[in-house]
Amino acid sequence: MGVAIVITSGKGGVGKTTTTANIGAGLAQAGSKVALIDADIGLRNLDVVMGLENRIVYDLVDVVEGFAKLKHALIKDKRFENLHLLPAAQTRDKTAVSPEQMKHLVESMKEEFDYVLIDSPAGIEQGFRNAVAGADKALVVATPEVSSVRDADRIIGLLEANEKHKPSLIINRIRPSMVKRGDMMDIDDMIEILAIELIGVVPEDEAIVVSTNRGEPAVMNANSRAGEAYRQITRRLKGEDVPFAKIEEESGLFSRIRRMIGGFKG
Protein backbone atom coordinates (compact mmCIF):
# COMPACT_ATOMS: atom_id res chain seq x y z
CA MET A 1 0.00 0.00 0.00
CA GLY A 2 1.46 3.31 -1.08
CA VAL A 3 1.21 6.77 0.37
CA ALA A 4 -0.65 9.73 -1.16
CA ILE A 5 0.91 13.17 -0.82
CA VAL A 6 -0.78 16.40 -1.86
CA ILE A 7 1.36 19.38 -2.90
CA THR A 8 -0.47 22.59 -2.10
CA SER A 9 0.08 26.27 -1.29
CA GLY A 10 -3.01 28.45 -1.31
CA LYS A 11 -1.37 31.12 -3.43
CA GLY A 12 -0.80 30.50 -7.12
CA GLY A 13 2.54 30.75 -8.86
CA VAL A 14 4.74 29.66 -5.98
CA GLY A 15 5.87 26.41 -7.61
CA LYS A 16 3.41 23.62 -6.78
CA THR A 17 3.54 22.05 -10.21
CA THR A 18 7.32 22.32 -10.51
CA THR A 19 7.63 20.81 -7.04
CA THR A 20 5.29 17.94 -7.91
CA ALA A 21 7.16 17.17 -11.14
CA ASN A 22 10.55 17.22 -9.46
CA ILE A 23 9.67 15.22 -6.38
CA GLY A 24 7.87 12.71 -8.59
CA ALA A 25 10.85 12.34 -10.90
CA GLY A 26 13.18 12.23 -7.90
CA LEU A 27 11.23 9.40 -6.25
CA ALA A 28 11.10 7.50 -9.54
CA GLN A 29 14.83 8.02 -10.02
CA ALA A 30 15.33 6.50 -6.58
CA GLY A 31 13.43 3.41 -7.71
CA SER A 32 9.91 3.95 -6.35
CA LYS A 33 6.77 3.37 -8.34
CA VAL A 34 5.20 6.80 -8.69
CA ALA A 35 1.97 8.27 -10.07
CA LEU A 36 1.34 11.98 -10.41
CA ILE A 37 -2.21 13.35 -10.48
CA ASP A 38 -2.83 16.79 -11.89
CA ALA A 39 -5.84 17.91 -9.85
CA ASP A 40 -5.95 21.38 -11.40
CA ILE A 41 -8.96 20.67 -13.63
CA GLY A 42 -9.40 23.30 -16.33
CA LEU A 43 -5.86 24.65 -15.94
CA ARG A 44 -3.70 21.62 -16.51
CA ASN A 45 0.04 22.16 -16.55
CA LEU A 46 1.80 19.22 -14.99
CA ASP A 47 1.81 17.57 -18.44
CA VAL A 48 3.82 20.38 -20.05
CA VAL A 49 6.20 20.70 -17.12
CA MET A 50 6.85 16.95 -17.43
CA GLY A 51 7.16 17.17 -21.24
CA LEU A 52 4.29 14.69 -21.70
CA GLU A 53 1.67 16.96 -23.26
CA ASN A 54 1.65 15.12 -26.60
CA ARG A 55 0.70 11.79 -25.10
CA ILE A 56 -2.61 12.62 -23.47
CA VAL A 57 -5.56 10.54 -24.60
CA TYR A 58 -7.78 10.34 -21.51
CA ASP A 59 -7.79 12.40 -18.35
CA LEU A 60 -8.78 12.43 -14.70
CA VAL A 61 -12.43 13.27 -15.37
CA ASP A 62 -12.69 10.45 -17.96
CA VAL A 63 -11.50 8.00 -15.31
CA VAL A 64 -13.77 9.32 -12.56
CA GLU A 65 -16.78 9.22 -14.87
CA GLY A 66 -15.95 5.67 -15.92
CA PHE A 67 -15.40 6.68 -19.52
CA ALA A 68 -11.81 5.39 -19.48
CA LYS A 69 -9.92 2.85 -17.40
CA LEU A 70 -7.18 4.17 -15.14
CA LYS A 71 -4.51 2.11 -16.91
CA HIS A 72 -5.50 3.64 -20.25
CA ALA A 73 -5.44 7.20 -18.93
CA LEU A 74 -2.09 6.95 -17.15
CA ILE A 75 0.77 8.27 -19.26
CA LYS A 76 4.11 6.56 -18.86
CA ASP A 77 7.04 8.96 -18.49
CA LYS A 78 9.65 9.12 -21.24
CA ARG A 79 12.64 8.82 -18.91
CA PHE A 80 11.45 6.63 -16.05
CA GLU A 81 9.25 3.65 -16.71
CA ASN A 82 8.12 3.61 -13.07
CA LEU A 83 6.75 7.17 -13.30
CA HIS A 84 3.19 7.86 -14.50
CA LEU A 85 0.98 10.89 -14.95
CA LEU A 86 -2.78 11.18 -14.74
CA PRO A 87 -3.49 14.49 -16.48
CA ALA A 88 -6.25 16.93 -15.56
CA ALA A 89 -9.14 17.58 -17.93
CA GLN A 90 -8.67 20.86 -19.73
CA THR A 91 -12.22 21.51 -20.94
CA ARG A 92 -14.02 20.89 -17.65
CA ASP A 93 -14.01 22.62 -14.28
CA LYS A 94 -13.42 21.71 -10.63
CA THR A 95 -17.02 20.65 -10.10
CA ALA A 96 -16.61 17.76 -12.59
CA VAL A 97 -15.32 15.61 -9.72
CA SER A 98 -16.22 15.41 -6.04
CA PRO A 99 -13.93 14.91 -3.04
CA GLU A 100 -15.46 11.44 -2.53
CA GLN A 101 -14.65 10.42 -6.09
CA MET A 102 -11.09 11.68 -5.71
CA LYS A 103 -10.74 9.74 -2.48
CA HIS A 104 -11.81 6.53 -4.20
CA LEU A 105 -9.49 7.13 -7.12
CA VAL A 106 -6.48 7.83 -4.90
CA GLU A 107 -7.23 4.81 -2.72
CA SER A 108 -7.25 2.53 -5.75
CA MET A 109 -4.01 4.06 -7.07
CA LYS A 110 -2.27 3.54 -3.72
CA GLU A 111 -2.67 -0.18 -4.22
CA GLU A 112 -0.55 -0.03 -7.33
CA PHE A 113 1.96 2.72 -6.60
CA ASP A 114 4.43 3.45 -3.78
CA TYR A 115 3.73 7.17 -4.06
CA VAL A 116 0.72 9.03 -5.43
CA LEU A 117 1.53 12.75 -5.69
CA ILE A 118 -1.40 15.12 -6.14
CA ASP A 119 -0.76 18.57 -7.62
CA SER A 120 -3.37 20.86 -6.05
CA PRO A 121 -4.81 23.94 -7.72
CA ALA A 122 -4.39 27.33 -6.04
CA GLY A 123 -7.17 28.53 -3.80
CA ILE A 124 -9.17 27.03 -0.96
CA GLU A 125 -12.33 26.07 -2.79
CA GLN A 126 -13.52 22.79 -4.27
CA GLY A 127 -10.40 22.22 -6.36
CA PHE A 128 -8.34 22.27 -3.17
CA ARG A 129 -10.83 20.06 -1.34
CA ASN A 130 -10.72 17.57 -4.21
CA ALA A 131 -6.93 17.54 -4.16
CA VAL A 132 -6.60 16.90 -0.41
CA ALA A 133 -9.50 14.44 -0.15
CA GLY A 134 -7.46 11.27 -0.66
CA ALA A 135 -4.11 12.46 0.66
CA ASP A 136 -2.32 10.97 3.66
CA LYS A 137 0.20 13.75 3.86
CA ALA A 138 0.52 17.35 2.66
CA LEU A 139 3.49 19.36 1.47
CA VAL A 140 2.88 23.10 1.66
CA VAL A 141 4.95 25.17 -0.77
CA ALA A 142 5.65 28.78 0.19
CA THR A 143 8.01 31.45 -1.05
CA PRO A 144 9.55 33.95 1.41
CA GLU A 145 7.02 36.68 0.63
CA VAL A 146 4.23 38.04 2.80
CA SER A 147 1.40 37.05 0.45
CA SER A 148 2.63 33.49 0.04
CA VAL A 149 3.28 33.00 3.77
CA ARG A 150 -0.12 34.38 4.67
CA ASP A 151 -1.88 32.02 2.25
CA ALA A 152 0.26 29.10 3.41
CA ASP A 153 -0.83 29.81 6.97
CA ARG A 154 -4.45 29.64 5.90
CA ILE A 155 -3.90 26.35 4.09
CA ILE A 156 -2.09 24.89 7.10
CA GLY A 157 -5.08 25.86 9.23
CA LEU A 158 -7.46 24.12 6.84
CA LEU A 159 -5.30 20.99 6.65
CA GLU A 160 -5.01 20.75 10.41
CA ALA A 161 -8.74 21.32 10.88
CA ASN A 162 -9.31 18.59 8.31
CA GLU A 163 -7.26 16.22 10.49
CA LYS A 164 -4.77 15.69 7.70
CA HIS A 165 -1.43 14.38 8.73
CA LYS A 166 0.83 17.12 9.93
CA PRO A 167 1.72 19.21 6.87
CA SER A 168 5.39 19.79 6.03
CA LEU A 169 6.84 22.98 4.58
CA ILE A 170 8.85 23.48 1.41
CA ILE A 171 10.41 26.92 1.21
CA ASN A 172 10.73 27.69 -2.47
CA ARG A 173 12.69 30.25 -4.47
CA ILE A 174 14.76 31.56 -1.61
CA ARG A 175 17.50 33.98 -2.68
CA PRO A 176 20.58 33.70 -0.48
CA SER A 177 21.99 37.09 -1.49
CA MET A 178 18.77 38.84 -0.45
CA VAL A 179 18.58 36.84 2.78
CA LYS A 180 22.15 37.87 3.53
CA ARG A 181 21.41 41.56 3.30
CA GLY A 182 18.21 41.24 5.31
CA ASP A 183 15.80 41.83 2.46
CA MET A 184 14.22 38.37 2.43
CA MET A 185 12.86 36.22 5.24
CA ASP A 186 15.16 33.31 6.01
CA ILE A 187 14.40 29.69 6.91
CA ASP A 188 14.14 30.41 10.64
CA ASP A 189 11.77 33.32 10.06
CA MET A 190 9.46 31.15 7.97
CA ILE A 191 9.42 28.27 10.45
CA GLU A 192 8.88 30.64 13.34
CA ILE A 193 5.84 32.17 11.65
CA LEU A 194 4.26 29.05 10.18
CA ALA A 195 5.22 26.68 13.01
CA ILE A 196 5.33 23.47 10.96
CA GLU A 197 7.98 20.91 10.15
CA LEU A 198 10.41 21.81 7.37
CA ILE A 199 11.09 19.24 4.66
CA GLY A 200 12.96 21.23 2.03
CA VAL A 201 14.53 24.52 1.00
CA VAL A 202 14.77 25.18 -2.73
CA PRO A 203 16.91 28.11 -3.86
CA GLU A 204 15.91 30.34 -6.74
CA ASP A 205 17.57 28.80 -9.78
CA GLU A 206 17.51 29.76 -13.44
CA ALA A 207 17.88 26.08 -14.28
CA ILE A 208 14.21 25.67 -13.33
CA VAL A 209 13.11 27.94 -16.17
CA VAL A 210 15.41 26.13 -18.59
CA SER A 211 14.22 22.70 -17.48
CA THR A 212 10.58 23.77 -17.73
CA ASN A 213 11.26 25.10 -21.22
CA ARG A 214 12.52 21.66 -22.16
CA GLY A 215 9.98 19.64 -20.19
CA GLU A 216 12.69 17.91 -18.18
CA PRO A 217 12.50 18.06 -14.37
CA ALA A 218 15.53 19.83 -12.85
CA VAL A 219 15.98 17.00 -10.38
CA MET A 220 17.66 15.10 -13.23
CA ASN A 221 20.21 17.87 -13.69
CA ALA A 222 23.21 17.13 -11.47
CA ASN A 223 24.43 20.74 -11.68
CA SER A 224 21.22 22.44 -10.67
CA ARG A 225 21.08 23.73 -7.10
CA ALA A 226 17.30 23.48 -7.10
CA GLY A 227 17.64 19.95 -8.47
CA GLU A 228 19.89 19.05 -5.53
CA ALA A 229 17.31 20.50 -3.14
CA TYR A 230 14.61 18.31 -4.70
CA ARG A 231 16.83 15.24 -4.44
CA GLN A 232 17.20 15.99 -0.73
CA ILE A 233 13.43 16.34 -0.29
CA THR A 234 13.01 12.99 -2.02
CA ARG A 235 15.40 11.34 0.41
CA ARG A 236 13.64 12.91 3.40
CA LEU A 237 10.28 11.65 2.12
CA LYS A 238 11.77 8.18 2.01
CA GLY A 239 12.61 8.54 5.68
CA GLU A 240 16.28 9.38 5.44
CA ASP A 241 17.65 11.98 7.86
CA VAL A 242 19.25 14.52 5.53
CA PRO A 243 20.67 17.56 7.35
CA PHE A 244 19.73 20.99 6.06
CA ALA A 245 22.83 22.54 4.58
CA LYS A 246 23.23 26.25 5.12
CA ILE A 247 22.14 27.85 1.90
CA GLU A 248 25.21 29.35 0.33
CA GLU A 249 25.36 32.30 -1.91
CA GLU A 250 26.54 31.65 -5.43
CA SER A 251 30.26 32.39 -5.39
CA GLY A 252 32.76 33.32 -8.03
CA LEU A 253 33.93 36.40 -9.84
CA PHE A 254 30.79 36.82 -11.91
CA SER A 255 28.41 37.13 -9.00
CA ARG A 256 30.85 39.37 -7.12
CA ILE A 257 30.92 41.77 -10.03
CA ARG A 258 27.15 41.60 -10.29
CA ARG A 259 26.82 42.40 -6.61
CA MET A 260 29.20 45.33 -6.93
CA ILE A 261 27.16 46.75 -9.77
CA GLY A 262 24.01 46.14 -7.77
CA GLY A 263 25.60 47.90 -4.80
CA PHE A 264 26.42 51.00 -6.79
CA LYS A 265 22.98 51.15 -8.26
CA GLY A 266 21.39 50.82 -4.82
Binding site: V146, V149, D153, G157, G182, D183, M184, D186, I193
Partner: peptide
Amino acid sequence: DASKDVAKERLRLVLVHDR
Protein backbone atom coordinates in the same frame (compact mmCIF):
# COMPACT_ATOMS: atom_id res chain seq x y z
CA ASP B 1 15.36 48.62 8.91
CA ALA B 2 15.99 45.42 7.01
CA SER B 3 12.85 44.90 4.97
CA LYS B 4 12.49 41.30 6.13
CA ASP B 5 11.91 42.53 9.67
CA VAL B 6 9.13 44.74 8.39
CA ALA B 7 7.67 41.74 6.54
CA LYS B 8 7.82 39.58 9.65
CA GLU B 9 6.22 42.19 11.83
CA ARG B 10 3.39 42.78 9.38
CA LEU B 11 2.84 39.06 8.90
CA ARG B 12 2.71 38.44 12.61
CA LEU B 13 -0.08 40.92 13.04
CA VAL B 14 -2.09 39.87 10.02
CA LEU B 15 -1.84 36.19 10.95
CA VAL B 16 -2.99 36.75 14.50
CA HIS B 17 -6.10 38.21 13.00
CA ASP B 18 -6.49 35.59 10.24
CA ARG B 19 -6.07 32.71 12.63
